[in-house]
């Protein structure tokens, strides 16, 4: 075993992870607090619908696109779904990942087979490439894209890529690859509060508000 690689792995799993976790958790709390401290005035118009119920419903229902819209931005919609679902499966249903959660929190759940996890990883990576491509070529995506968008796409792809390589021992020293994998996850965690990755938490808040505002009026959301 290569000592250097082993040391890096140990550092990545130890102090580096602690630092990343601190920035990740602290940053997210800060960003969420930044939202809620601004508050919201009480709405004095008598409600026609139920804002709370519709707000909660919209957190879920907005995951489904409006009829007829997918065809106008197929890469964004389909690529987006494949990426999110693929990443989710690879992250939460890979047995070694579940073991980490069990170690840390004492919880566990059934894993899925290697084939599913690896296919999900590969598909998520392909979807990411398609999403990057559309940011270069599609006029709407191009007009909106900032450095942040590319950074986030790359940072989300690296853990998938390094994980895939490490697990399949495709090339390089497996210990080193595992260290890279963990470091790439930590990079993602550190960038999280500073970038639009925040949407992974804040989407629930914004969807809730959207549903509540519309729901109060008895309008659809």
């Amino acid at each position: 075993m290569n000592n250097q690689a082993f040391d890096l792995l140990m550092w990545a799993r130890g102090p580096a992870f602690d630092i990343a976790l601190m920035i990740f958790a602290g940053g997210i709390v800060l960003r969420i607090v930044e939202i809620f401290v601004l508050g919201r005035k009480k709405d004095l118009a008598p409600a026609k619908g139920n804002p709370v119920a519709q707000g909660l419903k919209t957190i879920f229902s907005r995951s489904v696109p409006r009829e007829g819209l997918v065809k106008f931005a197929p890469i964004t919609y389909i690529g987006g779904y494949i990426f999110h679902i693929g990443f989710f499966i690879a992250f939460f249903f890979f047995a070694p990942h579940i073991a980490l959660f069990t170690d840390a929190f004492g919880v566990s759940w059934p894993s899925t087979g290697r084939v599913i996890v690896e296919s999900a990883t590969a598909l998520a990576l392909l979807a990411l490439i398609a999403l990057i491509y559309s940011r270069f070529t599609d006029p709407v995506r191009k007009a909106l894209t900032t450095f942040d968008d590319y950074l986030v796409l790359v940072l989300s792809g690296l853990p998938l890529l390094t994980g895939y390589i490490a697990v399949n021992k495709l090339f390089g020293d497996p210990t080193m690859m595992m260290a890279f994998h963990i470091l790439s996850v930590e990079a993602l965690m550190i960038a999280f509060p500073f970038t639009k990755l925040m949407h992974a938490f804040s989407f629930a808040i914004s969807r809730y508000y959207n549903g509540a505002i519309q729901g109060r009026k008895g309008a659809e959301s």
Binding site: R40, T76, T145, Y209
Partner: peptide, 18 residues
């Protein structure tokens, strides 16, 4: 005009262009 909903909206925007 900037309140919690506005802050949550800008925080959440993923620049997808949909």
């Amino acid at each position: 005009q900037i309140d919690a909903p506005v802050a949550s909206f800008f925080t959440s925007c993923v620049n997808c262009g949909l």
